[in-house]
């Protein structure tokens, strides 16, 4: 199992996770909310966190794993410091998603689903971020939308993400 690589110890994280779980204790319906917050805390969902969530909410570990693997948002493996989500919605596809992914591949040697060796970037392809008017677009770290992308602009754009 891959352990968390950041500075906070697992014990410290486990304590914080307990706080997240508290309002949902023995309430299986809170599973998706708790997992969302847990992933935001830890960065991904390692087995120890899954076990803790399962016990806290009173659901089986199997159900926790089932939900994690069903929804695209959840990850079982560590990800880079910055998540690049390239939009592959229809408008972006028509206007050049392929060109954007190729540029990222050339620049970072990164393919969808992969993380750079220095853990700086993780690349993923997402389905429509709702910025169709600005196609082709990508979103970094779930909040910064970059639209009207052109391959030449990408290197400079990535510089602000250390």
């Amino acid at each position: 199992m891959v352990e968390c690589s950041c500075n906070t110890s697992n014990e410290e994280l486990a304590k914080q996770l307990d706080k997240i779980i508290d309002p949902y204790r023995d309430k299986p319906s809170g599973l998706i909310q708790v997992l969302t917050k847990a992933q935001n805390l830890v960065g991904y969902l390692p087995k120890w966190a899954q076990v803790q969530v399962a016990e806290g909410l009173g659901v089986s570990l199997q159900d926790v794993y089932g939900v994690i693997t069903f929804y695209a948002f959840f990850s079982l493996i560590p990800r880079g410091r910055h998540k690049i989500s390239v939009c592959a919605g229809t408008a972006c596809y028509v206007k050049g998603t392929k060109m954007v992914t190729k540029a990222l591949r050339d620049l970072l040697d990164l393919r969808p689903g992969q993380t750079t060796p220095d853990s700086r970037f993780t690349l993923e392809i997402v389905r429509c971020i709702g910025a169709c008017g600005l196609a082709p677009a990508m979103i970094i770290d779930g909040k910064d939308v970059h639209g009207r992308l052109e391959p030449e602009l990408i290197p400079e754009l990535l510089e602000q993400y250390e």
Partner: peptide
């Protein structure tokens, strides 16, 4: 849960 690619009305 506006998931259709190419749709952002609900948003």
């Amino acid at each position: 849960d506006e998931g259709d690619p190419g749709a952002f009305m609900d948003r």
